[in-house]
Design a protein around this nucleic acid. Structure first.
Lengths: 240, 240
DNA sequence: CGTGCCAGGTGCCTT
DNA sequence: AAGGCACTTGGCACG
């Protein structure tokens, strides 16, 4: 059963928020506030009307006028509420993160509610689905490609798919379900180099990057290193 | 001036949200909802009480019970509201992102407010500050290091700091203001290789990764490639 | 708990 | 618009 306060005093809002959090509820505060983050990087939010969410896991997010990401946030520390000079919500995020302090001049709306069930999500269409598709139809990678193992371990990390090409040459396949950048090429290169060291000194090892697309620079990087790009769209994609 | 509705009908809430958005206000809806994202990756949120924020830039974020990141979001498309079967907020994020549909069984609180001023932020202590510090005191990188240029362009991308070491050897410095992982080592390696190709064939080129710390595997990667790690904490850091 | 790596990454800036 | 890269990246899975 959600509770709501309109234009509460700082004292009332502080008690309201503290009680709600103690009951495991999510608290939403809408009002005019300033915020500061002190730590490795300093960040200051000028006065403005924002939404603060204090979640039951003691994550605090402060959302401003635009964008998907919060303007400021903190998690990890205990959350403290103080009504000495306006309503102040504070949370220390630890050494690397820093400490967040949000001070409200005025709280327009304070709402507390039980976010029951609000954490069950089902996801599909991720890299795992792409892997399934490739394992099901290895020819998508390259005609004659034969998968032998997934997540095969090397000193440089696990190879997404390890196998042999039509000629029997050892091949490392790296999967990306998004347009691949230089980091993907470097990653594949590390795996191939590790395989060459692991296997016999004169062993030939190929590397294939499987992704819906690559950037131009990445395509050059791959070519320079004798690596191959194979375009494969993820299962649910509209551009089959 | 914020407006608030408590337990509105779907019709009332829809009109309220549409009007508010037309006025450039931010809309906050708290209530029981399900959500689906259809596109390259499929995501389904089971029934639960969540907070939906519809921002003036037509970003829609849906926050659940935990975590910094929204459970679902959309931006890019126009946002549509429909009251046919409960309150449905929808936004098509385009080809790669997919389309978001959030359907509320019940809206507990609907609030609309002008998020004026809520986008002015000041940031300091980022990588730029680390660069300033290093340029001010090059010995932090290594005794005798001399910076010659920043953002020097190579075929592999811009080098953070380009200079010479105490012996006059050409040196590429890559800055990270966080603990560095394998990607940073690869990035530095690409820059060094590009410099070797650009300069005379027999030119010696060194690479130094400057960061507060590196992971163990990254340290090995650097050593294997003859690259150097130099620990430097960012200016505001507590561990000086 | 550290380390590595994916992510609908997002956001910012340059060409 | 596309590419490249930092980010308090967040979050997950694994040793």
């Amino acid at each position: 059963m959600p509770r709501t306060l309109t234009d509460p005093t700082a004292d009332r809002a502080a008690a309201f928020a503290t009680d709600a959090a103690a009951d495991g509820l999510t608290v939403s505060l809408i009002g005019s506030c300033v915020a500061t983050l002190t730590g490795r990087s300093q960040r200051d939010l000028a006065a403005g009307v924002r939404t603060l969410l204090w979640k039951p896991d003691d994550t605090v997010v402060v959302h401003g006028a635009s964008g998907r990401d919060p303007d400021a946030w903190a998690s990890g520390g205990p959350v403290t509420v103080d009504a000495a000079d306006g309503l102040t919500v504070a949370c220390d995020g630890g050494h690397t993160a820093g400490a967040l302090r949000v001070r409200f001049d005025a709280v327009h709306t304070a709402t507390a509610f039980d976010a029951a069930g609000a954490d069950a999500t089902t996801v599909s269409g991720t890299e795992a689905a792409l892997k399934d598709r490739v394992l099901d139809t290895p020819d998508l990678v390259e005609p004659g490609f034969q998968p032998l193992a997934t997540e095969r371990d090397t000193p440089a990390g696990p190879i997404d798919i390890y196998g042999r090409d039509a000629d029997g040459t050892v091949t490392a396949v790296e999967l990306k379900n998004v347009r691949a950048g230089p980091a993907a090429a470097s990653q594949l290169q590390r795996y191939v180099a590790a395989l060459r060291r692991t296997l016999h000194a004169d062993a030939t090892v190929r590397g294939i990057l499987v992704a819906p697309a690559v950037t131009a620079k990445t395509r050059r990087l791959l070519a320079d290193r004798g690596l191959t790009f194979s375009p494969v769209s993820p299962p649910g994609s509209r551009d089959r």
